[in-house]
């Protein structure tokens, strides 16, 4: 495989993988907390599900960034574009914002959501407040995604 293409693949793979790892950890943290609460009160499943799902978005952002790279390279069509080393580096770097911001923010969002779940256990009516607090953390993943998309959009193959 040519170096340029390899770098581009590394970019796509790191976006999906790193953001995915972050989400896996984040959802895991929230899921543990939710199971604990549900062991006392199984009827809370519906309201806790949202809080558990919230740190999952980073993984999806990473996935879709990877997919944008894949589309750009034409991997799904079977006819892969010519990528020189410079373009390869560009694609790799463009993927970093969503990968890294996603990785870290998902873990911290998971922690916020886990605490939020404990809050819902005691204050069942304040369902949305922890959601908003979680969304505050997610902002930075969204911004990372935005920059990744804009950068990818600017790369000419």
């Amino acid at each position: 495989m040519e170096m340029g293409l390899a770098l581009a693949f590394l970019g796509a793979a790191s976006a999906a993988t790193l953001a995915g790892i972050g989400s896996a950890i984040g959802v895991g943290l929230a899921g543990q907390a939710a199971s604990g609460v549900m062991s006392e009160d199984p009827e809370k499943f519906g309201s806790l599900l949202l809080l558990v799902a919230l740190p999952g978005t980073q993984g999806i952002y990473g996935f879709l960034s990877a997919f944008l790279v894949i589309l750009k390279l034409g991997v799904t069509g079977g006819k892969i574009a010519q990528v020189n080393v410079h373009q390869g580096w560009q694609l790799l770097i463009a993927c970093l914002p969503v990968a890294l911001a996603g990785l870290i923010s998902a873990i911290h969002q998971g922690k916020v959501c886990a605490s939020g779940i404990y809050m819902v256990a005691k204050q069942p009516k304040d369902m949305t407040k922890p959601l908003i607090l979680g969304a505050l953390v997610e902002t930075y993943a969204v911004l990372g995604l935005l920059i990744t998309i804009l950068l990818l959009n600017g790369i000419k193959l």
């Binding site: 999806i60 952002y61 879709l64 969204v142 911004l143 995604l145 935005l146 998309i149």
Partner: peptide, 9 residues
């Protein structure tokens, strides 16, 4: 700008 990011996703 999140409006764009979420819409795009």
């Amino acid at each position: 700008s999140r409006l764009l990011a979420l819409g795009l996703s």
